[in-house]
Amino acid sequence: MDQSPQIGERLTDKSAAPDDALIRDWIGPEAFAQWSALRDWIAAEYPSVFTPDWIYGGKKHGWSLRYKKSKAFCTLLPEYRAFSAVVVLGGAEREKVDARRDKLSPRLMGLYDAAETYHDGKWLKIGISSPEDLRDVIALLTLKRPRRTTAC
């Protein structure tokens, strides 16, 4: 007998990468609004920099949407009735975060301080369920890779 999905479960059907309709149904309309807003922000602030790439991480991790150029920018994880962003911060990026601690939210700094540091950086998994959470992720991504400015 099939069980109903549990909050936080991942999309694990590897037969095809998910489309927007499946993502909206899986994560729910509120989370999908934040999902879309983050994707739109990345496309607007980093035009022609990233081509989002669906990657399948196996039965345990399922599908995720990766933004990467030469280095990973972020990865979006669609979860049942939720979604998260994974941001990996290397040494120079951690220095930027530490220098701006007073400008970042207490919630984000709590996640940052609790995250373990590995040889390739500090991995933060940030749940996004509100506009405030989205602002936290955008602030972190802007520190990770400053937005392009156009010269007049």
Rank of each mutant, 00 (worst) to 15 (best):
A82N: 11
R107D: 09
Y80Q: 06
T75K: 07
Y112H: 11
K69G: 12
R101I: 09
A72L: 15
R66G: 12
Y112V: 03
R94G: 07
T75D: 14
Y80K: 02
V87S: 04
L111F: 05
L108H: 07
A82H: 07
K71I: 08
S105A: 04
L89F: 13
V97E: 01
V97S: 00
V87P: 00
R100W: 05
A72I: 15
T75W: 09
Y112N: 11
K96L: 05
P106M: 00
L108A: 04
K96H: 08
V88Y: 04
V88R: 02
S70P: 03
V97T: 00
E95I: 03
R107Y: 12
S105M: 06
F73Q: 03
C74E: 06
R81K: 13
L104K: 10
E95R: 01
E95V: 03
V97F: 02
L89N: 05
K96I: 00
L108V: 01
A82C: 09
S70H: 14
D102I: 14
V87A: 06
V88P: 02
L89Y: 06
F83V: 00
T75M: 11
R101P: 03
Y67S: 06
E79I: 02
C74T: 11
S70E: 15
C74N: 05
A99C: 12
V97A: 03
R107G: 09
R94K: 12
K71Y: 08
G110C: 06
Y67G: 07
A99I: 06
V87L: 09
R81Y: 14
S70A: 14
G90S: 07
A92E: 15
A92C: 10
Y80G: 04
M109Y: 15
G90N: 03
L104A: 08
A85G: 02
C74S: 04
R81T: 08
A85D: 01
P78A: 00
A72M: 15
P78I: 00
T75P: 11
A85N: 00
A85Q: 01
R94Y: 07
G110F: 09
F83M: 02
R101S: 09
L77F: 09
L77S: 08
G110M: 10
L89Q: 07
V88T: 10
Y67N: 06
R100M: 13
L104F: 10
S105H: 01
D98M: 14
K69M: 13
K68I: 04
E93F: 02
A85Y: 01
A72Q: 14
F83I: 01
A99H: 08
K103A: 15
